[in-house]
Design a protein around this nucleic acid. Structure first.
Lengths: 207, 207
DNA sequence: TGTACATCAGTGAACGCGCGTTCACTGATGTAC
DNA sequence: TGTACATCAGTGAACGCGCGTTCACTGATGTAC
């Protein structure tokens, strides 16, 4: 063999990693095989030594991206009390950093709509990962019995995904308002339950 | 002139209407000029008698789709007390019907992620419509002073968009759980604040 | 009222381009002897 | 240790296809006379 097994595995890993970033940034059809391989420093013909088809790579890249989210959440489990864990996750998810780092963020807001139009294989893989995300989230942020924890995770995920997507879509002021609203919805209303200190136009503290 | 002015306007309207449906269903690049014109009963060459470019049509179709949402909400204003209006909107938005009717539903969950990768013109048009949606929603469902109403609208929109998107992505059981969770988040927890009657596996009443 | 001409929404072939995939080939390295 | 051969990750031209856009043309109808 020209290259060791490790070399081939490493090349494959680099392709998947790059795809996981670029697909989230540019959409499920936003980058082609040729451009992707060029970014990894190779030519497009070699792609099919690693993957059966473009779709196979897409599924792997998505899986990898979502496993990263799940892994981050699992790592947090048991490190603090549940309320603090919830706060950590929500603050990170609804931060301007996450909003602006599409390529390295959660795949649900950036690729969700795209996935709905893909083939059954891709859709199934994504749906399975969403189940895992809910389960992981329930373990880290939920309180009470399993059903209660799951319900909290489901609700939190919906608000976080919607707030992040809308904060990316909205311009200026409103973008931060979505992040802020999402934090309040999921964490309760810590600072001011019904005050009017958030008059439009005011600067909005983050974090 | 071969056809009256009304005839041309009518043709144009049919193209925009069909595009508004198909784009939401199949994504911003999911239907081409030729197929779209065929669905309207014409050939593709005639397209450019109506639109400067495909992008121009896309912007118009999106605008039309979002105006429909805004119009629906505005129509409701003042017909009931605000709490009932809120319930009407949320029940409709997070209904299985809306989940399953991508082509006729809210453009935000179905096209939001696509929009982020489009040109500045498309992005600006979409952002402006999101502002309008928030404003309309605040008028119909919000309580209190304007800032408070706006904050409620922003929060409600985030939860509704996220819940709908996730309910489309999730398979089986979890799909309904997202709709249910979204309803509870936005409407409060009407039936059972912290009970465990929603054990996984149980049938879930809708409406 | 009747006729010749102008208009222009719609037609359909053609274009240039980018894409996913295929395939014959290369050449560095592991392996057999 | 040294040499001939086999392997296979990676190369780059070529393919078939679909897309957005252009353009010369058509032909039904409005308008001028």
């Amino acid at each position: 063999m020209r290259y060791s097994k490790e070399h081939k595995d490493e090349t494959r890993r680099r392709i998947v990693a790059k795809a996981a970033v670029r697909l989230r940034e540019k959409g499920l059809h936003g980058i082609g095989v040729a451009d992707l391989m060029k970014e990894v420093g190779l030519t497009h013909g070699g792609f099919y030594a690693h993957f059966e088809s473009r779709e196979a790579l897409v599924i792997e890249a998505i899986t990898r991206a979502m496993d990263a989210s799940i892994g981050n959440w699992n790592k947090l489990a048991g490190t603090q009390d549940r309320a603090s864990q919830r706060a950590s996750i929500v603050e990170a998810y609804l931060s301007p950093q996450h909003r602006d780092a599409t390529g390295h963020g959660c795949a649900v807001p950036s690729l969700g709509a795209d996935i709905l139009r893909e083939g059954a294989r891709t859709k199934r893989a994504f749906a399975a990962k969403i189940e895992e995300m809910v389960a992981a989230l329930g373990e880290v942020i939920g309180e009470g019995d399993p059903a209660q924890r799951r319900a909290e995770a489901v609700a939190a995920m919906a608000s976080m995904v919607g707030a992040l997507l809308l904060s990316r879509l909205a311009s200026g002021e409103l973008s931060d308002e979505f992040l802020q609203a999402g934090r309040r919805t999921v964490l309760g209303t810590p600072d001011a339950p019904a005050d009017s200190s958030e008059a439009p136009g005011g600067a909005r503290a983050r974090k």
